[in-house]
Amino acid sequence: MKSLKQYSIPYTGLKIGHHEFNYEVGGLFFKEFEYSLVKNGTLKVDVFLEKQETLMVLDFHVWGLIEVNCDKCLSDFPYSIDTKDRLIAKFTESDELSDTEEVITLSKKDIEIDVSSFIYEIINLAAPYVNVCEDPGNTDACDQETLAKLEELSTSEEDSDDKDPRWDILKSIRKN
């Protein structure tokens, strides 16, 4: 968690108005989060903070490359992301702090806001749900041996000599 300290913004000394913070996210960042979908990447993060008297508005812009694991050949390949998100931090005097997805609350005792978890969340939400490169089998990152083995083991309906008669019955239902 020591490497995440750089992602804390001390807001107590900031004047009311606009402020900008820039971060670089790499492999050490993702190692701090257990069970991360993204294991590595080179990303840049711009945080535009607008401090007001009762709240702060943080606009995040994250762009760069993340390494994701291909669902087809199981090798890592780079995936480009460029995403924006917003977080609102409200100052409250009560001890009852209730956070929502887009609004967090800060007490009088807080002096800084840690944006590492929000950056991590933004990156993971920008990662593709299905991880397949743009041109499967034809990129440098593709594992040709695994793809060849998949092709060898896959059987199509036309190639199958021993057809199961149960499938013919089910196909006739679809035609009705």
Score class of each variant (00 low, 15 high):
residue 1 M to C: 12
residue 1 M to R: 11
residue 3 S to A: 04
residue 3 S to C: 05
residue 3 S to Q: 04
residue 4 L to R: 01
residue 5 K to W: 05
residue 6 Q to T: 10
residue 11 Y to G: 00
residue 11 Y to E: 00
residue 13 G to A: 07
residue 13 G to K: 08
residue 17 G to T: 03
residue 20 E to W: 02
residue 20 E to L: 07
residue 20 E to C: 05
residue 21 F to L: 05
residue 21 F to M: 06
residue 22 N to P: 09
residue 24 E to M: 09
residue 25 V to I: 14
residue 28 L to F: 03
residue 29 F to H: 03
residue 30 F to Y: 11
residue 31 K to S: 06
residue 35 Y to T: 07
residue 36 S to G: 09
residue 43 L to N: 11
residue 44 K to V: 12
residue 50 E to A: 04
residue 51 K to C: 00
residue 51 K to I: 00
residue 53 E to P: 01
residue 55 L to A: 12
residue 56 M to D: 07
residue 58 L to E: 04
residue 59 D to I: 15
residue 59 D to S: 15
residue 59 D to W: 14
residue 60 F to K: 12
residue 64 G to Y: 11
residue 64 G to P: 14
residue 65 L to W: 07
residue 67 E to Y: 09
residue 67 E to G: 08
residue 69 N to C: 13
residue 70 C to D: 02
residue 71 D to V: 08
residue 72 K to F: 14
residue 72 K to S: 14
residue 72 K to N: 14
residue 74 L to R: 05
residue 77 F to R: 01
residue 77 F to N: 01
residue 78 P to Y: 01
residue 79 Y to F: 15
residue 80 S to Y: 15
residue 80 S to N: 13
residue 83 T to M: 15
residue 83 T to W: 11
residue 84 K to G: 07
residue 85 D to L: 10
residue 85 D to K: 14
residue 86 R to G: 09
residue 87 L to N: 10
residue 88 I to K: 13
residue 88 I to W: 02
residue 88 I to C: 04
residue 90 K to P: 14
residue 90 K to V: 15
residue 91 F to S: 07
residue 91 F to Y: 12
residue 92 T to G: 10
residue 92 T to R: 13
residue 97 L to A: 07
residue 97 L to I: 13
residue 101 E to S: 13
residue 103 V to T: 09
residue 106 L to W: 15
residue 107 S to P: 08
residue 108 K to V: 06
residue 110 D to K: 15
residue 110 D to W: 07
residue 115 V to E: 01
residue 116 S to L: 00
residue 118 F to Q: 07
residue 123 I to K: 11
residue 126 A to D: 03
residue 127 A to E: 01
residue 128 P to M: 02
residue 129 Y to E: 08
residue 129 Y to M: 10
residue 129 Y to G: 07
residue 130 V to E: 12
residue 131 N to G: 01
residue 135 D to H: 08
residue 135 D to W: 04
residue 137 G to Q: 05
residue 137 G to H: 06
residue 138 N to W: 03
residue 138 N to P: 02
residue 140 D to T: 03
residue 141 A to F: 13
residue 143 D to V: 00
residue 144 Q to F: 10
residue 147 L to K: 13
residue 147 L to D: 14
residue 155 T to V: 12
residue 155 T to I: 12
residue 157 E to N: 13
residue 157 E to Q: 13
residue 158 E to D: 13
residue 158 E to S: 10
residue 158 E to G: 03
residue 160 S to F: 08
residue 161 D to G: 10
residue 163 K to T: 09
residue 163 K to S: 08
residue 164 D to P: 00
residue 164 D to W: 00
residue 171 K to E: 15
residue 171 K to V: 14
residue 172 S to D: 15
residue 172 S to Y: 14
residue 172 S to W: 13
residue 176 N to M: 11
residue 176 N to Y: 10
